[in-house]
Design a binder for these strands. Sequence first.
DNA 1: ATCATTGTACCGAACGAACGGTATAATGAT
DNA 2: ATCATTATACCGTTCGTTCGGTACAATGAT
Lengths: 186, 186
Amino acid sequence: MPAALQSKEAVIKQLSAVFRTHGYDGTTLSLLSEATGLVKASLYHYFPKGKQDMALAVIQNRTELFKREVIEPIDPDLDMRQQFEIMCDNLIHYYDHGRFACSMEVFSLGQSRILFQAIIAERVEAWIELLTTMLKKAGLTETLARQRAIDAIVRIEGALVVARASGNEQYFIDTLHALPAQLLEQ
Amino acid sequence: MPAALQSKEAVIKQLSAVFRTHGYDGTTLSLLSEATGLVKASLYHYFPKGKQDMALAVIQNRTELFKREVIEPIDPDLDMRQQFEIMCDNLIHYYDHGRFACSMEVFSLGQSRILFQAIIAERVEAWIELLTTMLKKAGLTETLARQRAIDAIVRIEGALVVARASGNEQYFIDTLHALPAQLLEQ
DNA sequence: ATCATTGTACCGAACGAACGGTATAATGAT
DNA sequence: ATCATTATACCGTTCGTTCGGTACAATGAT
């Protein structure tokens, strides 16, 4: 068989940038074609069910990337403050310094909201659980840990929106730099 | 002349719900027609330049609504803590209890990002200034006031995203109820 | 070592449907 | 009679999707 011009993961990452810039409904096959260098028919070779398949691949890729590049690199032997600092640095890269929206944000708008509602909701709750566990390890009570976990995700998502709406990515960077201290304060 | 079946503001409010649910690119004239009960020709009678005009009307309506229903009802004689509490209650209604996205969020995605970038960025900055002024009145330093102002907007926008992504509007309500205390703490 | 076969990677052209938008005639309250 | 408003029909374009196919590398019987 012929060698692929680029790996499937490389293709998905380019799809990801388009979906996260234009949203699901705003993303056209032409845009995806332009971004990947593959014509529409070729995209259907990789993703037989079309646009839905591509969006799903992006969601799965983002989920995996989150684990691999945000969570797993955190050394569990460090103290919790340092762990949160590393996590936030990783998040800045994961979200491309605030240049693109969060996949959970864009896929909860329009048509894609109905298509991916369940899987996105699951990811939000899983993230809340993860942060709650970390914050309990840092010594917070169950209740406070959960509150702060939600607040952290709220801040991250909000910072992405504010950065994009204002055209100033610094709002995102600053928010994430402030986060570790805020999570653990008092 | 024949009386309009509904006021222009009523029409715009229905357009608003569609745009804030589907985003600019995801909003079709069919959806807008369905939501308003007006056929396409009628929409073009009210908004000669079409979809762009309608989106612009929504942005302007939201700006005005924000002033009229969020800010102006705040009694400036109350102490600042109470003023923030009223503002947050007003915001819960302004954002329809988290049922729809923020117009600044959706219009900073896809095509509309290019179309409305400037006007949306202006609105974000104006909101930051407004909150900064209020927080200085509450006794905070310029620097801290501005930080907290940004943080408040970040939290509001983030809470809308988390509520929508998780399908649980309570995340929005809870975040807004916690906000007044957080703005003024220590 | 050869070569027909197979499976993967990719593409050109076209599909019906829906898109945003427009032209124009009919409607009906003043 | 006027004129804001709406209905109908239509425009060109682009949408997501599909079909028929080519290019090419690995395979395996000879």
